[in-house]
């Protein structure tokens, strides 16, 4: 093993110093995923309805976001080889040669340990433990195991992306409740149609890399059927916070309408199976799914903020 490694190093001499820029390190953290994590963790935190020092709240969200970024970094470290085989991910910092795998591993591990310790010290160790479990789940359970082993990879692995609202709530209260579990469920059920819509377009990429995504293993028709099933499930799950009495009728209307749009677009994709129209339908569902989750959590955020703001505004005679 060492002989092979030595020979590889002889044939391809490593640069003297890191070739990465600060931006490359930032890209290792998967900033788009971090945005989702920040947003959903904030909603989970506000759901607690308990006073929290704004500075501690801000620092907690930062710790959760850095923890999520660290898991993204470790994901890129482990999957650098297959990322290099796929068009969508070939320009990531490790396959492009900007950052060496060892640097990414050290960066990811440092941020993982740092974010968990920081969250534990400023809030509580339940939240820190949950954050550590989320990083473990994403890196070990999803990236190292499920992703390369089963067609259900993103269905189960989606849990990692769905935990942040619960961590946010736990940072304030030290426990979880049904409301944050419903928020978890929304992201969990949303993940398969979101990912599979993209995987349908990028199935050749996944096939080349040997990743058993649903379109590669079961084909386009079955993937479309599964997307439609999950979208039909997603609509009532999206409405659940209102159905359980946690939000107002305004949220119910928004979630029902946006859930209906998701079902319609999933059905549209189910009907369009070939050519450019099918490709456009996939991208349309993928883009809309991002907007769907944003709208739902923005509505949940407003449901928490508006009741807090009204007494303040009345007190200042602004209403």
């Amino acid at each position: 093993m060492s002989l092979v490694t030595d020979r590889l190093y002889e044939e391809a001499p490593r640069p003297l110093v890191s070739q990465g820029t600060a931006r490359d390190y930032y890209e290792l953290l998967k900033p788009r995923v971090m945005q989702l994590v920040i947003f959903t963790a904030l909603v989970g935190m506000l759901t607690a309805h308990e006073p929290i020092n704004p500075i501690i709240g801000f620092a907690s969200i930062l710790a959760i976001a850095i923890g999520a970024g660290a898991s993204g970094c470790l994901n890129m470290w482990y999957d650098a080889t297959i990322d290099g085989l796929m068009e969508r991910t070939a320009k990531r910092p490790i396959p492009s040669g900007a950052i060496a795998p060892g640097e990414a591993l050290a960066f990811g591990m440092t941020l993982s340990i740092g974010s968990v310790l920081f969250l534990g010290l400023i809030t509580n160790w339940y939240a820190a433990g949950f954050l550590a479990f989320t990083i473990f789940f994403y890196v070990v359970v999803y990236t190292m195991w499920l992703k390369h082993w089963t067609v259900q990879n993103i269905v189960i692995g989606g849990a990692a992306g769905a935990f942040p609202p619960m961590i946010g709530y736990m940072a304030v209260t030290g426990s979880v409740n049904l409301e944050t579990f419903l928020q978890f469920l929304i992201i969990f059920i949303w993940t398969p149609p979101h990912f599979w819509a993209l995987a349908l377009v990028k199935s050749k990429d996944y096939a080349r890399a040997g990743v058993p995504m649903l379109p590669v293993i079961a084909g386009g028709i079955e993937t479309r059927r599964q997307i439609l099933i999950y979208s039909i499930l997603l609509a009532p799950v999206g409405m659940a916070p209102a159905l359980f009495g946690y939000t107002s009728l305004v949220y119910l209307a928004i979630s029902a309408l946006s859930g209906g749009i998701m079902i319609w677009l999933a059905y549209d994709l189910y009907r369009k199976r070939d050519g450019d129209t099918a490709r456009k339908a996939s991208y349309r569902l993928f883009g809309t799914s991002i907007l769907y989750l944003f709208v739902l959590f923005a509505a949940l955020l407003l449901e928490e903020i508006v009741p807090m703001m009204i007494p303040m505004l009345i007190g200042r005679n602004l209403i």
Binding site: P15, L16, V17, S18, Q19, G20, T21, A22, Y25
Partner: peptide
């Protein structure tokens, strides 16, 4: 170029 990247980092 290496030096510039090192400085920026």
């Amino acid at each position: 170029e290496d030096l510039a990247k090192q400085k920026a980092r």
